[in-house]
Design a protein around this nucleic acid. Structure first.
Length: 153
DNA sequence: GCCAACGTTGGC
DNA sequence: GCCAACGTTGGC
């Protein structure tokens, strides 16, 4: 099956590209949006490549590249009563929230700011650039992926 | 800190 | 099943 490409948002104050580089691989816990969950559960495959995007911060934009490193499995934080992500309606038998592991690939030499992405005509279809977009995981095309990596290199 | 846009909840 | 109210996201 052909490799697919994604963009995943993260707040660098919580977990940024430098944190991912340090830990190597991270379980992408805490997603509590059904569309984003469905992408992880149904469509993301080991080896797919990910644009790692920094949101809600001073320098908003694409900071690095990661890959999908596991098959989908249940997000353990949903069963932890002490977690912010605890979901009382979820059970071990029928887990509601599914995640994948994300593995560090590289940090872009230069962060590609959102303001630069907006200037590029061939990126104008990206979900991240649409007004009101809030989805934390979105598919991107191979062309968009390559273009943005080039911008940051 | 503001606020527009969105997703979810819950009353009816 | 509708839709108002609410909480959250995220750029600025």
């Amino acid at each position: 099956m052909a490799k697919q490409y994604w963009l995943m948002k993260s707040e660098p104050e919580e977990f940024g590209i430098d944190d991912l580089e340090r830990v190597g691989t991270e379980a992408w816990s805490g997603v509590r949006n059904y569309q984003a969950r469905n992408f992880m559960r149904d469509e993301m495959k080991v080896g797919d490549e990910i644009l790692f995007y920094h949101s809600s911060t001073k320098n908003v934009g694409v900071a690095g590249v990661a890959t999908v490193a596991s098959a989908p499995y249940a997000d353990p934080t949903q069963f932890n009563k002490k977690s912010n992500y605890y979901d009382e309606k979820s059970t071990e038998e029928k887990p509601r929230w599914i995640l994948i592991d994300v593995k560090f690939k590289k940090k872009l030499k230069n962060l590609v700011p959102l303001s630069e992405l907006k200037k590029v005509d061939c990126l104008s279809e990206m979900r991240i650039l649409q007004k009101g977009n809030r989805l934390s995981i979105t598919p991107v095309t191979k062309e968009e992926f390559s273009y943005i990596v080039k911008m940051g290199s």
